[in-house]
């Protein structure tokens, strides 16, 4: 029984959790969301640029996009965050006088996310049937307009589930920003839990942090399933009884 009590106290000390939750909600949650959402949005923009380069007809652009993607997809997140955050920190401080690690943290997360998002967009764009581009070009649209109006919108739709998955991993990766050193008001969910755990020698605050991440990510995984399903079956639409009349439209009259 002692061992069980010990475990319960280590992981599920409700008082220790209750003590840390207000701070997690008011400070940690907003900061985690700021990191994840801003790097998600910027990652999508940069990712789209990479995807357009990666599917373009110009070989140098394709190679450039390939090299970028290989680098930022192949290096561990922690390495990129440390190199960017610690390495560029002094430069930013000299230029702006700011010691806030958020911009560099967001930059590091964006650089990595965009490599993945670029690949997601590229696979979506390349999955659109060749006939779509051909039909658009036959109407008189240029290659660029055809991509913008016809091919890319369809490609994005197909990869929305993968995009949400990417956002989920961004929420989790944002915890690594703690490595850059955060002021009390800059701490995100993990750092608050970790600090409390370190101060009390009890891991329950980390369990609270884990629960907080789950509150964010589980609804998103279900959103993925919903979108996936919706994309596969399409929007439900009422069938009209006049389909039989199709053969007798005006055009059918001699």
């Amino acid at each position: 029984m002692d061992a069980l009590d010990q475990l319960a106290k280590t992981f599920f000390d409700w008082e220790a959790m209750a003590a840390v939750i207000p701070n997690m909600l008011t400070v940690g949650l907003p900061n985690t969301l700021i990191l994840a959402v801003s790097s998600g949005v910027l990652g999508c923009i940069l990712g789209m640029v990479l995807a357009i380069m990666g599917t373009s007809r110009s070989t140098p652009l394709r190679v450039l996009s390939r090299i970028y993607t290989d680098i930022f997809r192949g290096v561990p997140a922690i390495v990129v965050i440390l190199l960017i955050g610690i390495g560029l920190g002094p430069v930013i401080r000299q230029l702006t006088g700011s010691t806030n690690p958020f911009p560099l943290g967001i930059l590091a997360l964006t650089l990595m996310a965009s490599a993945y998002i670029g690949e997601i967009f590229r696979s979506g764009i390349q999955s659109v049937e060749k006939g779509q581009l051909e039909a658009s070009r036959a109407l008189g649209f240029s290659y660029n307009s055809s991509m913008r109006l016809v091919v890319i919108p369809q490609g994005i739709r197909r990869v929305l589930p993968a995009l949400v998955n990417q956002f989920i991993s961004l929420i989790k990766d944002s915890s690594l920003i703690y490595l850059l050193g955060l002021l009390a008001s800059q701490r995100e969910i993990f750092r608050i839990g970790n600090d409390a755990a370190a101060n009390t020698g009890n891991l329950s605050p980390l369990i609270a942090a884990a629960a907080m991440y789950l509150v964010l990510t589980v609804p998103l995984t279900h959103l993925v399933n919903y979108i996936d399903n919706r994309l596969r079956t399409g929007r439900p639409e009422k069938k009209q009884p006049d389909d039989a009349a199709a053969l007798i439209g005006k055009g059918a009259q001699p």
């Binding site: 006939g131 779509q132 039909a135 036959a138 008189g140 016809v150 369809q154």
Partner: peptide, 20 residues
């Protein structure tokens, strides 16, 4: 060529309507 294609309509075997 884009302006030329505006003057020539084309219909395909697979229709190629824009599904979105």
């Amino acid at each position: 060529p884009d302006e030329l294609r505006q003057r020539i309509g084309m219909v395909f075997q697979q229709f190629n309507l824009f599904p979105h």
